[in-house]
Design a protein around this nucleic acid. Structure first.
Lengths: 275, 275
DNA sequence: TCATTCAACTCGTTTGAACAAGTTGAATGA
DNA sequence: TCATTCAACTTGTTCAAACGAGTTGAATGA
């Protein structure tokens, strides 16, 4: 009976929200209502100061809320712009079928991106290090054993997309030297290994999200308010032997992941999964 | 030839990093180096003002960087505390085997949480609405058709863990009325449906990350710097018929997800996957 | 002993000012 | 015409001051 009264007192009886939050709330609903569509420019701080009758610091505090929510991006000299994302979807469960793809198709990233009509680009770097305790455990090698780290930073149309670090145990690299080739392995490393008899028949995937470290934010060119997706895939051979551990950091605003599970015949043949 | 000179000028020749960023960088490395372990308190603003010789606003700007990185949390009157996470791992691929579990085990959430020695708690709410265009398409019903929305907010030891909204097409609820029961379906709704002949044999999962909306931040009790994981699972029967679409919002700092793919016999039997 | 009060601490909000630095487009001059 | 300059914008950084509001523990008093 007093439900509505209680609600009202939640709003009215409480001390009013601080001004900077009112500014944030107002601008947020203006954005989500479409009055400032993605890619458009917000009013300048000067205009907002006049509109809300607030000091500059207060206006900036309000805008900062929206920045940390990933809604807007500031640019010195140019104003604030509403974020516009273009989402790329990765089908992680399809990747287990990668071994059956044709070798001339190239690696799956370039493949997917080109299929979407975009231009892929990759940078590689290879390092040899000692395995950390965790890496050693996951790759089932002795503590402090050698591993080869294969870094890869990926771009789509020159926009940084993901950074990847794959750990291979030394014994595997010795038998498959192209893994330590700092250049691209055109057909993809998984395919390369499979062709040489090291078939990954099972994967353990882990997904998490967090804010990027400063290094990651720099490499992926993302500012505050944009989280990253962290993907850790461990690949196993049929002898239960782990052969690689890949850590991929995705820009959270640009990427989605899908898994198809169970009797895939029961799934719609043509997933019309527009975001 | 001038490569190195350019590099040096990037570091030395450039104007020094602004003071608030120096403060952020210093405090960040203090934290990551373990000088302020998780759960410990940072020096007060007053102390940092003295240590860095900066104005209070500048110190706060520095700390704000760490807040939006999810590293620290401020509390009025109590100071800044280094974040401490306790991560809960959800095995999403195991859930496809849920139908073969024993009915008396209860739903999988309560199950998992109790298995970890924690106290689960759930709140339910049910609504009947018209399907949005997207919902109608995904659930393969006519546009504007009725759907039943089943909300669930989950807690672990009274900490908000996730909020979930499941859409069921009206025809399914008519045949299985307990779906519109605002209370808990003890054995889990998937199990309940399976027992009544509606077996979900395939799933399409989508994962994404973003910053929470203000509503989500309130419901999950998370502040700036903590992203959410968004999980959308669509369940299909063997007749290729979608029967539900579940959207789950997880606190990103508390949750991890795993998938086991491929020939699971090749995976280590006892996953010692400590974070 | 025990509950209360309250001073001294903490962070939260807001103002106003000043200068630095990046961007843009119009005016300028070759 | 075309490149340059520069004024007038934009956001970025920093300072100083004041008051509000939550927390804590020691002093106080019953």
């Amino acid at each position: 009976m007093y439900e509505q009264v209680a609600r009202v007192s939640d709003d009215v009886g409480m001390s009013p929200a601080p001004l900077y939050r009112q500014i944030a709330d107002t601008m947020r609903s203006d954005i989500t209502a479409g009055r400032f569509p993605p890619g458009s420019k917000l009013p300048s701080e000067r205009e907002l100061i006049d509109r809300f009758g607030a000091a500059r610091g207060t206006v900036r505090a309000g805008l900062n809320v929206l920045i940390t929510e990933g809604l807007i991006t500031p640019a010195q000299g140019r104003g604030y712009q509403v974020q516009q994302h273009e989402v790329f979807t990765l089908d992680a469960s399809r990747h287990e079928n990668l071994l059956f793809s044709r070798p001339e198709d190239g690696d799956s990233f370039s493949n997917d991106v080109r299929h979407a009509g975009r231009a892929p680009h990759q940078e590689f770097r290879v390092e040899v290090t000692e395995a950390s305790a965790e890496a050693a455990q996951r790759l089932q090698i002795e503590d402090g054993g050698r591993i080869v780290l294969r870094y890869c930073r990926r771009f789509v149309d020159d926009t940084p997309w993901s950074i990847q670090a794959t750990q291979y145990p030394q014994w595997l690299v010795s038998e498959n030297p192209r893994l330590s080739d700092p250049g691209d392995v055109v057909e993809g490393t998984t395919r390369y290994l499979a062709d040489r008899g090291v078939k990954q028949v099972a994967f353990h995937d882990e997904w998490a999200t967090r804010m990027p470290t400063p290094d990651e934010a720099r490499e992926l060119q993302i500012g505050p308010g944009i989280p990253v997706l962290v993907w850790v895939r461990t690949g196993y051979t049929s002898e239960k032997r782990p052969v690689r551990r890949t850590v991929t950091i995705f820009r959270g605003d640009l990427n989605r992941v899908t898994y198809d599970l169970g009797d895939t015949d029961a799934l719609p043949t043509e997933e019309v999964n527009a975001a």
